[in-house]
Measured scan of single mutants.
Amino acid sequence: MTYKLISNGKTLKGETTTEAVDAATAEKVFKQYANDNGVDGEWTYDDATKTFTVTE
């Protein structure tokens, strides 16, 4: 399945996607992506749209 990340960081804003077997796997990928880009904030997940959002 395709999962989307919306980043509302102070230094990184935008969207990216990943293919993953489940939401937990996608979350690990996205949290590593955010960490690699210096984004640390509040996370939410919408199962209906398969979208994670991180806001700093």
Rank of each mutant, 00 (worst) to 15 (best):
E56Y: 09
Y3G: 04
G38A: 06
E56F: 09
D40M: 13
V39A: 04
D36T: 08
T44V: 09
G41K: 01
G14T: 14
K31F: 05
E19P: 04
G41A: 03
T51A: 04
G9Q: 05
K50H: 12
T53Q: 05
N37R: 12
D36K: 09
N35V: 13
L12P: 05
G41T: 02
A20W: 02
T16I: 15
A26P: 00
K13T: 10
S7Y: 15
I6A: 04
Q32P: 01
Q32E: 09
G14E: 13
M1P: 11
T53P: 01
G41S: 02
Y45L: 01
M1G: 12
G38V: 03
A48K: 12
M1Y: 15
T2E: 09
V39G: 03
V29Q: 08
A26C: 00
L12V: 09
L5V: 03
L5M: 08
F52K: 01
K50I: 02
A34K: 01
V54K: 01
T51C: 03
E27V: 04
K50W: 05
A48Y: 10
D47W: 08
E27C: 15
K28V: 09
E27N: 04
S7K: 04
K10F: 11
T11E: 09
D36Q: 10
T18S: 04
G41E: 01
T55A: 06
T17F: 14
M1D: 14
D22N: 07
K50Q: 09
V21K: 13
D40T: 14
F52R: 01
T18W: 07
G38P: 01
A23S: 08
S7Q: 08
V54P: 01
F52H: 01
Y3R: 03
G14L: 15
Y33G: 01
D47S: 11
K28T: 08
E56D: 09
A20K: 02
L12D: 05
D46L: 03
T11A: 10
D22I: 02
T18G: 02
V21W: 12
Q32V: 07
Y33T: 04
D40W: 15
T11R: 11
A24N: 08
E27R: 08
E19V: 15
E56C: 07
E56A: 10
D22A: 03
V54D: 00
K13V: 12
A23R: 14
A24C: 13
N37Y: 11
A34F: 05
D46N: 09
F30Q: 00
A48Q: 10
F30L: 05
D47V: 09
N8C: 15
T16Q: 09
T25G: 08
T53L: 06
G38I: 04
T25N: 08
G9E: 04
G14W: 14
K4Y: 15
G41L: 04
F30S: 00
E19R: 14
G9W: 06
V54L: 13
A20E: 04
T51K: 02
N8H: 12
D36I: 10
A23Q: 11
G38K: 07
E56K: 06
W43Q: 00
A20M: 02
T17E: 08
T49C: 04
K28Q: 10
T51G: 01
F30C: 00
K28D: 05
E15I: 14
G41F: 04
T49S: 09
K50F: 09
A34P: 00
I6C: 07
K31N: 03
W43H: 00
T25I: 07
L5A: 02
D22V: 02
T53H: 07
A24P: 08
G14C: 15
V29N: 06
A20S: 06
T2H: 07
T16M: 15
D46T: 04
T2K: 11
T25Y: 07
Y3D: 04
T2M: 11
G9H: 10
T11M: 12
Y45M: 00
A23D: 05
D40I: 14
K31E: 03
E42K: 10
D47N: 07
A20N: 02
G14Y: 13
L12Q: 08
M1A: 13
